[in-house]
Design a protein around this nucleic acid. Structure first.
Length: 492
RNA sequence: GGCCCCAUCGUCCAAUGGUAAGGACACCGGCCUUUCACGCCGGCAAUACGGGUUCGAUCCCCGUUGGGGUCACCA
């Protein structure tokens, strides 16, 4: 059996452990069948996609030990492997759909759509989607308006009634009624395709046989199946993996858990342990052993054996597994090498030393001042986070907004960090010191510490944000309700 | 809210139409040990609920409840 699987990440942020999770299963399944594993970059969102994110994703996948046979960096005979380089291909298929009457241009403005949506919600209509105003536009009028330069998107014609039945490898047949799906946009006003069109065209052209991805996609399968039908193509097998969860069972999110692969790397986890841990989410070795390699997985995997209860990502168990790898699979010499690669290398030591040098009276002071640069978390107490004349709740809000602000810092340098923090303090009409005080506590775990912004730069964005979140938990955290309110207030 | 998906210890993963429901993490106790950790031994702890089908259901069916996802010119 020829098997080709793919990982199709969108380069819009930090490399996510969920991406590695999907990659692991896709890769293992392809290799178990002597097939290929393809990496395709889905950068059809011009606003949010970035080359930096793409690079980060490729780097972290390589770090964790996933390799791809075809991809934007290695090429392959089904390229290009970046969707923004495939626009001409999508164009052809979109034109074809319009021509055959399966899709139509829609001239509705964003304002009109918002209004329609609002009204439908008020009316408690079962379907809150698009009202299909442009669906029955006379072709002549549509052409005229397009030629007049009016902005438009292209929508696919979803059947007005009946059911869509499709098969998921893990769940069996799933039925969804067409009436609950609105006429999906397949080409945006900027001429870029949306995910739904691009994914179908690419998976077909790249001869993908199994789509292994997260469960959040189940509801859009009917749109994809319909496109396959329009094009008269054979749809691949669908295998929707359970979603990794936070301890509170919601979808794993950076709000509640470190989700960036880079965090785990920086925090001193071994790639093989992380990968192994991901492998035991929903799957197990036939003999029940918990420590296994990706090769073991390849030898034993069967997609239908994956269990469906969405697993909670448990950092304690990951730590335990990681410890097992450290002590069972490494000699002291090997461990020393790994430590050097991780942080005890001249370049990192130099950066750290630069930050603390002015505080040293003896060389031995170095160890005292730099411990925070070589650890995952830091010992935070409530007292360290306390600011004079400020309520705990206000400190919490301050820290939360700081995290949001820091997430947006593209180039993680001391001066950009400083700028971001100044903006936060201005937003709260506070002196910068009111912000840096709890931050020192959160980041350094001490009042005696090297300069904050420089330290943050050296530590990196992932560790910093994780430490701030941890500090917030020490203070009791923000309730979901308060968080929402705050988000509304500051996030616009 | 509509729709879709899911449901075994707190967590991860097993098992079977007839079971003492098993292993791992975490937690607790003990042993080992100069401490801690590791290791070893032991303990706590689950089939969400209600109906069916069946001689017998944790397992099959239906309902309820609960959880999650999804309803964008984001993927």
């Amino acid at each position: 059996m020829k098997v080709r699987t793919r990982l199709a990440p969108s380069p819009t942020g930090d490399p996510h452990v969920g991406t590695a999770y999907q990659a692991l299963f896709g890769y293992a399944w392809a290799k178990a069948n002597g097939g290929q594993f393809v990496l395709r970059i889905e950068d059809t969102d011009q606003e949010r996609s970035s080359k930096a994110s793409e690079k980060a994703i490729l780097d972290s996948l390589k770090w964790i030990g996933i390799e791809w046979d075809e991809g934007p960096d290695v090429g392959g005979s089904f390229g290009p492997y970046r969707q923004s380089d495939r626009l001409h291909i999508y164009k052809k298929y979109i034109d074809q759909l319009i021509e055959e009457g399966h899709a139509y241009p829609c001239f509705c403005t964003k304002e009109r759509l918002d209004g329609v949506r609002k009204k439908l919600i008020e009316e408690k209509a079962p379907n809150r989607g698009y009202d299909r105003l442009c669906r029955d536009l006379a072709p002549a009028e549509a052409i005229q308006r397009m030629e007049a330069g009016e902005s438009f998107v292209v929508r696919m014609k979803i059947p007005l009634e009946g059911d869509c039945v499709f098969k998921d490898l893990l769940r069996g047949e799933i039925t969804k009624d067409w009436a609950s799906i609105d006429d999906q946009v397949i080409m945006k006003a900027d001429g870029f395709p949306t995910y739904h069109l691009a994914v179908v065209v690419d998976d077909h052209l790249m001869e993908i046989t199994h789509i292994i991805r997260g469960e959040e996609w189940i509801n859009s399968v009917p749109k994809h199946v319909l496109l396959y039908k329009f094009f008269n193509w054979q749809a691949p097998e669908y295998c929707h993996l359970p979603l990794l969860r936070n301890p509170d069972k919601s979808k794993l999110s950076k709000r509640k858990n470190p989700t960036s692969i880079n965090y785990y790397r920086k925090a001193g986890f071994l790639p093989e342990a992380l990968l192994n841990y991901l492998g035991m989410m929903g799957w197990h070795m036939p003999d029940g052993s918990e420590k296994f390699t990706i090769q073991d997985m390849i030898k034993n995997i069967n997609l239908t054996d994956i269990s469906l209860g969405s697993p909670v990502f448990d950092r304690d168990k990951l730590r335990w597994l990681n410890g097992k790898y450290i002590r069972e699979d490494n000699t002291v010499a090997e461990l020393t090498d790994k430590l050097q690669e991780w942080a005890l290398n001249p370049s990192y030591i130099r950066r750290v030393t630069e930050v603390v040098s002015s505080r040293l009276e003896t060389l031995a002071d170095w160890g005292y001042f730099t411990a925070m640069f070589f650890s995952d978390s830091v010992p935070v107490t409530e007292e360290l986070l306390t600011v004079k004349n400020m309520e705990t709740s206000e400190v919490l809000e301050l820290l939360q907004v700081t995290i949001w602000k820091l997430e947006k810092v593209r180039d993680w340098t001391s001066s950009n960090i400083s700028q971001a923090l100044k903006e936060v303090s201005e937003l709260f009409e506070l002196k910068l010191k009111a912000l840096t005080t709890p931050l020192y506590g959160a980041i350094c775990g001490s009042k005696i510490a090297p300069p904050l912004f420089d330290s943050m730069e050296v530590l990196g964005s992932d560790i910093c944000r994780t430490r701030i979140t941890a500090a917030m938990n020490v203070l009791g955290g923000l309730s979901g309700k308060k968080l929402k309110k705050l988000e509304k207030k500051y996030r616009a």
